[in-house]
Amino acid sequence: MMTPETIFGKLQQKFNENPDLSDKVKAVYQFVLTGDGGGQWWVDLLSKPGMVGKGEKTGANCVITMASEDFVGLATKEANAVKLFMSGKLKIGGDLSAAMKIQNVL
């Protein structure tokens, strides 16, 4: 079963395999996931290859807050970020255009 932990692990692998992904995004994200398997993770796509880490990172220009269950749905393409946002299940702090770009990376 997928958990945020495994998803972020796979994301790091993906960044290592495709270092150029950072070029398309160029932003730092802070994920605040609530509920089972939740926690905080950051994704730094200013560096090349992109980096993923657990905890808080200063200088994030986009903070995404959501339930970890929804995050798994988003990563497995079962959920839609815009729908989650419009229904209030996903909160975006900071740069909206950066938030749009992370969808493609996930």
Binding site: M86, S97, M100
Partner: peptide, 9 residues
């Protein structure tokens, strides 16, 4: 999508 996010914000 961008317009929806902007509207939501």
């Amino acid at each position: 999508d961008a317009a929806l996010l902007r509207a939501g914000r």
